[in-house]
Design a protein around this nucleic acid. Structure first.
Lengths: 116, 116
DNA sequence: AGGATCGTGTACTGTGTAGTACACACTACT
DNA sequence: AGTAGTGTGTACTACACAGTACACGATCCT
């Protein structure tokens, strides 16, 4: 699914039981021209900037990283984490490319529990 | 160190025992105008595109991911790995942010040895 | 019936990206 | 002494990015 159609779906679901989720009102809260948000939601134009996607995700109660991913972007803080130790993290990510979800999850859990 | 100065240092080191590493010849092999490479090496202009950095890294025998990182960029294939399973990898990376190098390396090794 | 709200069509703008093209002065051979 | 090669200054270009501004017709409310 495209970024825009997904945003539209989410917004319209919210709109069902909250009239403040009209395109115009969301655009107002997020700080965009309604015409621009309209074009975004119809995928007439490319997804907006990372900052705008962040505000949109917050207003719609969606996961910021997921929304960014649908826009083909990676959050700036993640980019910085990789860049700081580039060859190291590059290798790790390429190793993890084919690893199943539960393995990646297990690793994240182990690291969180601090057993290094 | 800035991207450009680093490239210049590397190139001049190569130039010491191989006259084919003049700015003009490298530019020729990599497919750039000499004036442009000159501006890049003096950090007068922003680092070039990912593709160009890749060709530069190859010609200079440098690590592609490292050079990209110095340019503030992340390789496209890594971005795709994250984007495919965005919230999952986002969480993992944030967990690993403070982990020491040897811990990250150990994880990469374990994954490579396929014990999941 | 009439104002408020709704989504959208069209035109325009400023900034950044990723370079090319050409001319110039300096140095190094031979 | 001449020519080949070196790095650099300046001007320019094409295209993408990230939007704003305004007008329009349709719908809802009361």
């Amino acid at each position: 699914m495209e970024f825009g159609s997904y945003v539209r779906d989410v917004r319209e679901r919210r709109l069902n039981d909250d009239r403040s989720y009209s395109l115009r009102q969301v655009a107002g809260r997020v700080g965009l021209e309604p015409a621009y948000l309209s074009k975004i939601e119809r995928d007439v134009t490319a997804p907006p900037s990372e900052e705008t996607i962040g505000r949109l995700a917050e207003d719609l109660g969606e996961d910021r990283d997921l929304l960014l991913a649908m826009a083909g972007k990676v959050s700036n803080d993640l980019r910085q984490i990789i860049i700081r130790r580039a060859p190291l993290f590059a290798d790790l990510l390429r190793q993890l490319k084919e690893a199943p979800d539960h393995a990646v999850l297990r690793i994240a859990r182990e690291v969180r529990d601090g057993d290094w």
